[in-house]
């Protein structure tokens, strides 16, 4: 594209298309994931419309798994509902850090447009945008976002419709599906041995609180706090040693 060292900027349409193409391999991974979430949602008693609205408005995979699991276990009424929202917030707190690294890219963009674009920031969106470097355009961003969004919406709704057809999911060990899914998600957060102390602290705190009040969601809060506290100590120590 460059002649005599002058780069001709790509048209928005080309940028959009590049975004679509770059996220196709990610879509291939996200679709079965969405389908699985949908079938678990059906087991939890969610309708395809409930699931579709959640995917369309929350649009954050890991937190949706957590939400569906809690809805399955504790229902949606009263304080159980507030606990679900709290859990979604905790799982998505990492967005703060991801968004922080994208700040230079969004500096010149009007606040309303940035706010809309950032609605679509998922782990995958963030990774692709970061890899694009300083040449990142809004057209590229929306090429990725539109593809991921439609794939996520379609696969989770399809999973819910299909899942509703399975009569008794627990008979097939499917109650273990949640555990397996969460462990796979957890593996994605592994950053080396340093990840272990916060995780062990979280497990210990969660088990202790769960033994005292089984069924509630307090053990999740306890685990998050214990894990966060240990990580904070690690972070402080790393900064001191550096």
């Amino acid at each position: 594209m460059s002649t005599d060292g002058i780069t001709i900027p790509a048209s928005p349409r080309q940028e959009f298309a590049a975004g679509v193409v770059h996220c196709l391999p990610i879509v291939a991974g996200a679709v079965p994931f969405g389908f699985l979430l949908g079938s678990l949602a059906a087991k939890a008693g969610l309708s395809a419309l409930d699931m579709g609205l959640m995917s369309a408005l929350v649009f954050a995979g890991s937190s949706q798994f957590v939400a569906v699991e809690l809805l399955d276990k504790n229902g949606s009424g009263g304080s159980a509902g507030l606990a679900v929202i709290g859990a979604i917030l905790l799982v998505n707190l990492r967005h703060l850090l991801m968004g922080a690294t994208l700040e230079p890219r969004f500096r010149g963009i009007p606040r309303a447009r940035a706010g809309l674009a950032l609605f679509f920031m998922t782990d995958e969106q963030w990774a692709l945008a970061l890899r694009r470097g300083p040449e990142l355009t809004l057209a590229y961003w929306y090429g990725v976002a539109a593809t991921l969004y439609l794939a996520w919406l379609a696969s989770t709704v399809a999973g819910t419709l299909a899942g509703a057809l399975i009569a008794d999911p627990t008979a097939w060990g499917l109650d273990f599906t949640f555990i397996a899914v969460f462990l796979c998600l957890l593996a994605g957060f592994w950053r080396g041995v340093g990840s272990l102390p916060p995780w062990l602290a979280s497990a210990a705190a969660a088990l202790a609180v769960h033994a005292l009040s089984p069924g509630g969601t307090w053990h999740i809060i306890a685990g998050a706090l214990a894990g966060g506290a240990v990580a904070a100590i690690q972070g402080k120590r790393r900064a001191r040693d550096a």
Binding site: V66, L93, S195, W199, G223, G228, A231
Partner: peptide, 12 residues
């Protein structure tokens, strides 16, 4: 560390 800690607390 929070997302990982939440997942651990959920499954443990």
């Amino acid at each position: 560390a929070t997302p990982g800690a939440v997942l651990v607390a959920l499954v443990a």
